[in-house]
């Protein structure tokens, strides 16, 4: 996967909590057998009318967000279904960083396998970013190495991430290759259990 060390980008705010993966990518698009091309279906039922025309009242359809690569949302982002199509759709649309006060466990994990950096910040920090992004074109930098997020107007916040996930994202490692260096131990474990 593509490594991520430092990322600077336009912030797209979506001020809702409990955004589930059914909203991020509805089930009608899970029938495909490819990994690519899911960006066009991101937030589909919110972005489009039944006839496929864009909904003007959904902010992601505003052309100013075409270049957005950082998404900021409310609590419990990515809850529900384990579908990895959700991070695939976010990534394919152009998002590399997601900021929220909290994430659902499976989604958080899935992000890290796809070069997307999920950043959990304090509620008030998320609100500050949300307010700034709702009122103007707002850019942030996420620095994974330093575990901090900042803008050029003095906002700064630090975030936690496990050292394992940090290494994986920084280096873009293929996790299976890492695991298979322990193949002898897997075999020993299997042999010992009979």
């Amino acid at each position: 996967m593509e490594p991520i060390q430092q990322h600077e980008g336009l912030v797209y705010p979506i001020n809702r909590s409990n955004i589930d993966t059914d909203q991020i990518i509805p089930k009608q698009f899970l029938k495909r057998i490819e990994r690519q091309g899911f960006g066009q279906f991101l937030f589909y039922n919110w972005r489009f009318h039944d006839d496929g025309t864009p909904r003007e009242d959904f902010s992601l359809n505003n052309p100013v967000y075409e270049a957005a690569s950082i998404l900021v949302a409310g609590e419990n982002f990515g809850c529900g279904s384990s579908r990895e199509h959700a991070p695939w759709a976010l990534q394919d649309f152009g998002f590399r960083v997601i900021i929220a006060p909290s994430f659902a466990d499976i989604f958080y994990n899935n992000c890290s396998k796809n070069g997307i950096l999920p950043i959990a910040l304090k509620q008030e920090e998320v609100e500050a970013i949300m307010t700034a992004a709702e009122s103007s074109s707002y850019h942030l930098t996420a620095d994974l190495e330093a575990q901090r997020v900042y803008d050029n107007q003095g906002f700064e916040a630090s975030f936690d991430i496990t050292s394992y996930m940090r290494e994986m994202l920084l280096n873009g490692w293929d996790e299976i290759s890492v695991t298979l260096t322990h193949e002898d131990k897997i075999s020993q474990f299997e042999a010992a259990r009979g």
Binding site: E84, I106, N109, N110, K113, E175, T179
Partner: peptide, 12 residues
């Protein structure tokens, strides 16, 4: 688990 982990468990 997600699909990347499905692949991981299949392999390892």
């Amino acid at each position: 688990i997600g699909t990347s982990e499905v692949e991981h468990v299949l392999a390892a």
